[in-house]
Computed example of a mutant assay.
Amino acid sequence: SVLLPCYSDIQPEDPFLIWTRSDLSPNFVHLRRENDDDLKNQNQRFRNRTSMNPDALDTGNFSLTLRKPERFDGGNYSCSISKSVGSVMTAASFKHIHFLSVGQQEVEVTEGSDSVVLPCRTSSLLPEDTSVEWTRSEPEFMMVHSSSNQRNQDGFYRDRTEMSKDFLRTGDVSLTLRNPRDGDGGRYVCTVHRDQDVLRQTVVLKYVKEPFPSWASALLVLLVLVLIVSAGV
């Protein structure tokens, strides 16, 4: 999921809280009327994927949770509070989200490799406050790498991950994983926090165990033949 933040201290009587996207028809993403959601006119793209805090109108926290984000979710979202659907009092805030790609990339690494690169790229010349996180959610949540705070890194990946120090200039936020091992295979999520944008890409790492070497097979056959001959003698 992704959280679209929106806060305001404006609390009119009989309020409507509206999340919209102007490039869609219908443009309603989520509507809160008093303390109840009114989703009859919600755009079908967002059906069963949006939610807000039950006490949003009381606390002024109008943030929207969007579950299972897809590429078509990228766009400009408007959060506003009004007395009626057709009379907007104020635009509380705006949120822009973009996603790097549909689906996912796949990378394969063979047992015994020195390292593997999990690719992830965004635009170059990133703002200074841009942060990048590499995470895993299966079999449990794990912080694989963080550009801003490595103290939260899971011990399984300690001293094995590295990102380019020049990623702000190049936009290359790929992750190098050293000494790949059994257990590294799985789904990785690259998340880039850039200004008000959230960019996300999934990389699936396939860990392939090295097959039994041919020279070892030949040696085993030779050893069996020697044992047979020795037994015959």
Results as ranks from 00 to 15, higher is better:
116 V>M: 03
33 R>Q: 08
19 W>C: 04
215 W>L: 11
226 V>N: 07
126 L>D: 09
24 L>Q: 08
50 T>E: 03
98 H>P: 08
219 L>G: 12
20 T>F: 00
69 P>W: 00
208 V>T: 06
193 H>F: 11
143 M>L: 10
223 L>T: 13
137 S>V: 08
148 S>V: 11
179 N>H: 13
54 P>D: 02
30 H>D: 07
57 L>W: 01
192 V>A: 01
40 K>H: 13
183 G>D: 00
122 T>M: 07
107 V>H: 01
221 V>E: 09
180 P>F: 00
9 D>M: 12
185 G>V: 04
197 D>Y: 10
209 K>T: 02
50 T>F: 07
136 R>D: 06
40 K>V: 13
218 A>D: 12
26 P>K: 08
149 N>F: 06
29 V>M: 02
75 G>E: 04
50 T>A: 01
177 L>S: 02
35 N>L: 00
168 L>E: 03
195 D>L: 12
40 K>C: 06
130 T>L: 06
6 C>T: 06
6 C>I: 04
4 L>R: 08
178 R>E: 10
34 E>R: 15
120 C>F: 04
216 A>T: 06
4 L>A: 08
129 D>T: 08
65 T>W: 10
64 L>N: 04
134 W>L: 10
117 V>K: 11
36 D>F: 08
160 R>M: 01
231 A>W: 15
213 P>I: 01
77 Y>M: 08
180 P>A: 01
26 P>N: 06
90 T>G: 09
112 G>F: 10
192 V>W: 00
53 N>E: 14
3 L>Y: 11
96 H>Y: 08
22 S>E: 15
167 F>H: 03
187 R>W: 02
98 H>W: 11
103 G>M: 05
45 R>D: 06
4 L>H: 04
216 A>L: 14
161 T>A: 02
1 S>C: 13
201 Q>T: 03
165 K>I: 02
111 E>S: 14
144 V>E: 01
231 A>Y: 14
52 M>V: 14
202 T>P: 01
93 S>W: 05
33 R>M: 04
233 V>G: 10
113 S>N: 10
147 S>P: 11
103 G>Y: 02
171 G>K: 02
161 T>D: 00
77 Y>A: 12
76 N>A: 05
125 L>K: 11
199 L>H: 00
156 F>E: 01
204 V>C: 08
60 G>V: 02
65 T>Y: 05
89 M>F: 05
77 Y>S: 07
81 I>W: 04
7 Y>C: 13
111 E>H: 01
115 S>K: 14
136 R>S: 02
120 C>N: 04
4 L>G: 09
230 S>A: 10
14 D>N: 14
76 N>L: 10
220 L>A: 13
11 Q>R: 15
33 R>C: 05
